[in-house]
């Protein structure tokens, strides 16, 4: 009767198992430092441009839209505060993470998936390497380090985008914008602005690795794994952020 639940429960179980091993391996040797650096380069440097671009334009769009609403209250001077809070608390982490999910959860899943179907993962195990240690843990560490940094960049460029609108269209001085943007931020905002991308990074890396490592059914299977990795990690990003928000609001 509960057969339809069997598959998701099994998936979750396997996912937890993989995550457990990946975390445990962080504290075990051998450490593959080269692989960690390579992944940081792929994820960080590779996503830098698109994250910056989207960060900047989200600031621009937000300032434009908000300025109309604020104008009705004669509160256009608050534009810096609004852009700053929304970006740092929510939009920066979520946007950067969604972009990285799209670029890297898929990249990880398809790379590991191809390795799976061409029996490279089996070969690794046969030749004395733990594929979780060699493939999953480096991707987990790299994403967890790089995504918060990307988020900071996205936040900053979003503020620059907001300033661009404030300065060119709203008649707000530079010091007015930046000081209000900075002063409104509380310790709590910064914490959640960094904890979120850190958690999202873990989800992105592990979901990508999970679907990659569990690929079956040849090259078609690789395509399916890639799609699933992006969809599932994006959904979890929204689930996690909406679970965290009430926590931080009450702080």
């Amino acid at each position: 009767m509960l057969d339809f639940l069997k598959r998701p429960v099994e998936t979750f179980q396997e996912f937890v198992l993989l995550s457990g091993r990946a975390f445990r391996n962080i504290f075990r040797s051998p450490h593959y430092a080269d692989d960690i650096l390579l992944q940081m380069d792929i994820i960080g440097a590779g996503s830098l441009f698109i994250v910056s671009l989207i960060g900047f334009f989200s600031g621009v769009v937000m300032a434009l839209q908000m300025s109309r609403a604020l104008a009705t209250y004669g509160a256009q001077g608050k534009i810096g505060e609004i852009v700053s809070i929304t970006l740092v608390r929510e939009l920066g982490p979520v946007l950067a993470s969604l972009l990285v999910a799209g670029r890297n959860a898929s990249g990880i899943a398809s790379e590991l998936g191809s390795m799976r179907v061409t029996e490279q993962i089996d070969a690794m195990r046969a030749l004395g390497t733990d594929p979780i240690q060699k493939l999953v843990t480096p991707r987990l560490i790299a994403t967890a380090v790089v995504l918060p940094l990307l988020t900071i960049i996205a936040d900053f460029l979003g503020l620059v985008g907001g300033y661009f609108i404030a300065a060119t269209m709203l008649d707000i001085t530079r010091s007015q914008y930046w000081s209000s943007a900075w002063q409104v931020l509380e310790y709590n905002d910064l914490t959640q602005g960094l904890i979120k991308p850190f958690l999202f990074a873990i989800v992105i890396a592990l979901v990508g690795c999970y679907y990659g490592m569990h690929t079956s059914g040849g090259t078609q299977g690789v395509g399916r794994a890639t799609t699933k990795a992006v969809v599932v990690s994006s959904v979890w990003i929204f689930v996690i952020t909406s679970m965290l928000d009430p926590l931080f609001v009450n702080l």
Partner: peptide, 22 residues
């Protein structure tokens, strides 16, 4: 798995799909 590595070290395998690290 960890205890299998020493046994596997005494076996050579040619995989059907190659298994070469690309």
């Amino acid at each position: 798995e960890a205890q299998l590595f020493d046994l596997r070290a005494r076996v050579g395998i040619l995989f059907q799909e190659g298994g070469l690290f690309d």
